[in-house]
């Protein structure tokens, strides 16, 4: 959503760009969304430690791999933002394609993971673990998918010739903020939901 209606009024109090501030607020709100989801998961996990053994289905190599890929996409995203600031469309496109590609790999891994888990008999309704796990990681996946879609839009937009180093750089930066945030959330989920299960004393 590119509402910039009022940016050009240039009022005296403008410290941080409107769109960026809006994104920061959204991310603040989103923290609470994920906070609620993750704590629901942890609460039920603590409440019913015996009800399900996630190690039956977890595949640490695969998930670590997809986590690494998502992390690397953040590096590319940062490069894309800086390219746009310099107005280098070519390198912007290259790096953005990279981010999109990484995002898609991550999503593919998640689809594979969900399918695999379901085959192993863990569904949304099997137990509370299934409910909280799928809803939490699914919400995260939807975030990634939205981000990928957004970046694809920006990628094609760069061919319309309407992109400039000022206004569009802000747009890309806002998309970047979102992307980094989604990454960070995944790191938290990866730690609090996957890795924690491998610590013997905690289970």
């Amino acid at each position: 959503m590119s509402d910039t209606e009022h940016q050009e009024d240039g009022h005296g109090s403008l410290v941080i760009n409107n769109k960026k501030l809006l994104m920061w607020l959204f991310l603040g709100s989103d923290c609470m969304f994920f906070g609620t989801l993750i704590s629901t998961h942890l609460i039920y996990r603590k409440l019913y430690p015996e009800s399900y053994d996630p190690l039956l289905v977890f595949d640490l190599e695969l998930t670590s791999g997809s986590t690494f890929i998502l992390l690397m996409s953040s590096v590319l995203m940062a490069l894309a933002v800086s390219a746009m600031h310099k107005g280098e469309l070519k390198s912007f496109r290259l790096t953005t394609i990279g981010v999109i590609f990484c995002g898609l790999i991550f999503l593919a891994c998640q689809v594979y993971e969900f399918a695999h888990f379901t085959n192993e008999g863990l569904t949304l309704s099997t137990n509370t673990f299934g409910s909280t796990f799928y809803m939490m990681t699914g919400t995260h996946g939807v975030h990634v998918a939205i981000g990928v879609f957004w970046l694809i839009c920006l990628y094609f937009y760069s061919y319309t010739g309407k992109m400039d180093a000022h206004e569009s750089a802000v747009d890309v930066e806002v998309a970047g903020l979102y992307w980094h945030f989604v990454d960070i959330v995944w790191i938290i989920i990866f730690t609090a939901v996957y890795l924690i299960e491998y610590i013997p004393g905690l289970r």
Partner: peptide, 19 residues
């Protein structure tokens, strides 16, 4: 939510000079 975010941005960013 959308209205609230809008108002935070408005109040932080859209104040007249000196406000």
């Amino acid at each position: 939510l959308s209205a609230a975010m809008n108002f935070v941005v408005t109040i932080v960013n859209m104040r007249a000079p000196g406000m």
